[in-house]
Amino acid sequence: MVINTQNLTFTFGNQTVVKSLSLQVPEGSIYGFLGPNGAGKTTTIKLLLNLLKTQEGSISIFDLDLQNNRIKILSQIGSLIEQPAIYLHLTGRENLMNRALLLQIPETRVDEMLRLVHLQDAAHKKAGQYSLGMKQRLGIALALLSDPKLLILDEPTNGLDPNGIIEIRELLMKLTGEYKKTVFISSHLLAEIQKMATHVGIINHGELMFQGSIQELEALSKPSVQIETDQAVEAANFLKKNNVNVSEVSDHHVFVPYTSKESMGEINAMLNQNGYMVYSINKQQQDLEKLFLAITQNA
């Protein structure tokens, strides 16, 4: 495990922000750390980076205890926390040069990073004049500068346009796929993470509600049959009378829990034979977003 926390608990005043959190982040994974705003994601990340002192529980990263190996561990982590921390009076390149100076990284790597995040044309422009997306990309370049084994990114796609989001996603997938890096990425949007994450942890009110691979998460969602028909409400009542379980009815659709292909065919035949026009009928995986909401709202 690259990150392994045991019963991590953190209290601000009398408010417990992180409750007995046990995270397991395997090597080479993109671990999506999900939760609504205020769930304790940023606090957890600050604990992982030793920006906040661990009060209860333990954190080990690269199988080393964080308290006793702070510098060794931090030298292999690149991070981006909330909005990128950038000196606005310096140019994009100078921001990277300053970090390179601190970490004793050759200048060639700075230019390499600028190209990677497509900022080479704006390299000599003051970071204060950057758009939000450019700042975010510079933040990612700063995180990647030292070629770290583990990237910890807190909401890195905030403020990016759809193209920017896709670019970041492809970059992160490349980093884990080709370079065997591990990425720990937090977000309050499942849809954004779903396409790249291999593992997911869902946190709410400081508690871990779910942790596992993305397949395990998908397995939790039950498929349903979506029937498009001319008289949705009447069709739903008809099905109920015939002992078919109806889960949801909207203006044009009826939803029935999926059991088998055969039962789907039978429902179709039944509706047709009784004068209901079926425009379409198909099996549908439950939206992970709904599942996410269900998990976080049950708390």
Partner: peptide
């Protein structure tokens, strides 16, 4: 101003 305390204190420097 740059909100960089968190960055400089998460560098591999004491």
């Amino acid at each position: 101003k740059a909100d960089t305390w968190k960055t400089i204190f998460s560098l591999p420097i004491s």
